[in-house]
Computed example of a mutant assay.
Amino acid sequence: MTTTSPRPAVLDDGCTPAPHVLAMGTDAADRLAAVLKALADPLRLRVVSLITASPTGEACVCDIATLADVSQPTVSHHLKVLKDVGVLTSERRATWVYYRLAPQVRGAVATLLDSFAPAAVEPARDAGTGLRDTDAVLDRVAARLTAEFPDASAPTVQLLVRESYASLARTATVGAHLVVNAERFARQRLTDRARPAGDTRPHVLFVCVANAGRSQLAAALLRHHAGDRVVVRSAGSAPAAAVHTGVMPALAALGADDSAFPKPLTDDAVRAADVVVTMGCGDTCPVLPGTRYEDWAVGDPALASPEGVAAIRDELDRRVRALVADLLPAD
């Protein structure tokens, strides 16, 4: 007797439904839906893309916190959601927590970001630097800095250059000077790492939220008053895209150099500093033993009038002069 496979039922409108066996299982669908629901948030997608784009495959919570203007508890909530569904793993190292993609989802997330995202998002973004081969340009930057810092290995310099470029690119709105600034930033970081044992000059780091007003002004004032007798750095816990427009005339009057662009706070700068002066960055500033910390309650010039900026500059000048007198008492 000849047997035949059962034929799918045909609906009245002529549609033949697909067999249920072709559909995803209920349990698998539930698990996948939970992951997709966790990812279906703009900030969480940005967190995942940041980690995926990192040359080291990981991101510090201090970098993640700069992605949006939200509170630290909010950032922690989003990271917990991604961890709970198995997308992220975390590891604490000294003062910071680092996040990575879980190995089992790494390929799937890469596909989501590399294939689906470009198809879903209208390609309306600016071309950034306008460079066709950024990798080649960054390789040349790394080669120059490797020759300049022979004690640092070539892979270390290359990684640091790419990290510096990526961290600035996340907030930059104009890409014309991005590679140049990335080289300056990488050179500064290498200099901080290679601080000679015989360099007895005080190293001072000014930190605010955006590194676009208070910390830039304080750094420029300290350079103005102390010259090269003090090594000066500035950074932001959530750096802005550019220095505040209202602050630029004051910086120009002080002869601010090419380092006056917003930069993220790095462990290199903190470790090299003898004095860390914070201005409103709160708990996002790492605290290391043996380093002197001061917190200056100074107004934010971001939205201040020209008169307000001048008052803030004067207050910073008073504090900087006192700091110079304390650090260089023999002068």
Rank of each mutant, 00 (worst) to 15 (best):
T2P: 13
T3Q: 09
R7E: 14
L11N: 12
D12V: 12
D13E: 07
C15T: 14
T16Q: 13
R31W: 03
L32H: 09
V35M: 09
L39E: 02
L39A: 05
L39Q: 01
D41C: 10
P42M: 04
L43I: 10
V47Y: 00
V48K: 02
T52I: 02
A53L: 03
T56M: 08
G57D: 02
C60Q: 07
V61E: 15
C62Y: 13
D63G: 08
D69V: 11
S71V: 11
L79K: 04
L82K: 04
D84K: 14
D84Q: 07
D84W: 00
V85Y: 03
R93G: 08
R100K: 10
R100E: 03
L101V: 11
P103A: 10
P103D: 08
Q104A: 13
L112A: 10
L112F: 02
V121R: 15
R125G: 11
R125E: 06
G128Q: 11
R132W: 02
V137G: 03
D139N: 06
R140T: 14
D151T: 12
D151V: 08
A152G: 09
A154K: 13
P155G: 08
T156I: 09
L159K: 10
L159R: 14
R162N: 03
A172H: 01
T173M: 15
H177D: 12
V179D: 01
R184W: 12
L190C: 08
R193M: 14
D199A: 07
P202W: 01
V204S: 00
F206D: 00
C208P: 00
N211I: 04
A219H: 08
H225F: 14
D228G: 06
R229T: 13
R229G: 12
V231P: 09
S234T: 05
A235N: 05
G236K: 02
A242W: 07
T245L: 12
V247Y: 00
M248T: 07
A252H: 15
D258W: 05
S259Q: 12
P264Q: 15
L265I: 15
D267Q: 09
D267P: 01
V270H: 00
M279Y: 09
G280R: 08
C281H: 05
C281I: 06
G282N: 03
C285M: 09
P286K: 05
R292F: 04
E294G: 03
A297Q: 13
A302T: 03
A304L: 02
P306M: 01
A310M: 06
A311H: 07
I312G: 13
D314A: 15
A322P: 01
V324D: 01
